[in-house]
Design a protein around this nucleic acid. Structure first.
Length: 265
DNA sequence: GTCTAGCCCGGGGTAGCTAA
DNA sequence: TTAGCTACCCCGGGCTAGAC
């Protein structure tokens, strides 16, 4: 979608971008070849400079550039061009962020591999691993996951960040992650349908009290199921956004998710 | 070249919504 | 309860085209 975007360019808003599209110029390459006639020569030249810069930023895999220059409701546009540097993220904690609350587990999924981090075991590896990615996809992560991670580790997460809560809300889907999953036709497998954030706290407490590996594995299974489903939701949301555009653009295929390595007890 | 009107971007402020 | 987001409104300012 970025190859077709102009509203990240200073002085170009959504209405000017739509006028560009309606004039028959549907991509950056088409603009460079033949700018729309309604723009002055001076303005076309300025825009052409920004388009060249944008093409360089895409080649350089600089997602942050577009994240900073697109309006927040258009952030979803960066997904396709940076899909191979995207990671889906979800954390489980012992509470909502009150003093003393901790991160219990973190799950990452990059479209190929699943990684998970457990408090008391390998959780500090997360700080190194997250740096490998350019884009984070989460659900309500802008309000909860990322601030929690930043406070917990004392680090700054400066990635481009697509929060599905707002993208799905703009498409008419609301009511929480699980509700959005149901509305978009994906159900939780087995007993995971009954697990929620509070139950995840109970599972962690049981693991700490009894050292029950089954409780820990059930918690990890729930945590990983969340990040696997985020990919499906992100691609579904992207495709729905694409269909809203007055352009004839290809939709993305939804890949087969890998098997959850943990079973619930 | 200057002036004017119109368009539109973008910033600031406010209210309401939502999840953990 | 908290934090961050969107939507909406208002307004200032930059840019452009057209008239003179």
């Amino acid at each position: 979608m970025l190859q077709h975007s102009f509203s990240h360019i200073p002085t170009v808003g959504v209405s000017t971008e739509e006028k560009i599209w309606n004039s028959g110029v549907g991509s950056m390459d088409e603009f460079l070849e033949s700018p729309p006639s309604f723009l002055s020569i001076k303005k076309s030249e300025k825009l052409a400079e920004h388009i060249q810069l944008s093409k360089e930023k895409i080649s350089a895999k600089d997602a942050r550039y577009f994240y900073d220059h697109l309006s927040s409701k258009e952030h979803w546009r960066i997904f396709k061009e940076f899909q191979d540097s995207t990671v889906y993220l979800d954390i489980e904690t012992t509470g909502l962020g009150s003093p003393g609350d901790i991160i219990t587990t973190i799950a990452l999924y990059d479209g190929k591999n699943i990684k998970y981090y457990i408090n008391g075991k390998n959780i500090n590896d997360f700080k190194k691993d997250i740096k490998k990615y350019g884009v984070i996809v989460s659900y309500n992560g802008k309000t909860f996951d990322i601030p929690f991670i930043e406070n917990y580790f004392g680090i700054r997460i400066s990635h481009a960040h697509l929060d599905l809560r707002y993208i799905l809300y703009s498409l008419g889907y609301s009511g929480g992650l699980k509700s959005c999953e149901r509305q978009l036709g994906i159900g939780r497998t087995g007993s995971l349908a009954d697990v929620d954030g509070f139950f995840a706290v109970l599972l962690w407490n049981d693991y700490k009290k009894t050292r029950s590996e089954k409780s820990l594995e059930t918690l990890l299974s729930y945590n990983i199921e969340d990040v696997l489903n985020l990919e499906y939701l992100m691609i579904e949301a992207y495709n729905k956004k694409i269909k809203e555009m007055p352009l004839d653009l290809d939709i993305l295929d939804i890949p087969l998710a890998p098997e959850n390595p943990f079973e619930i007890d």
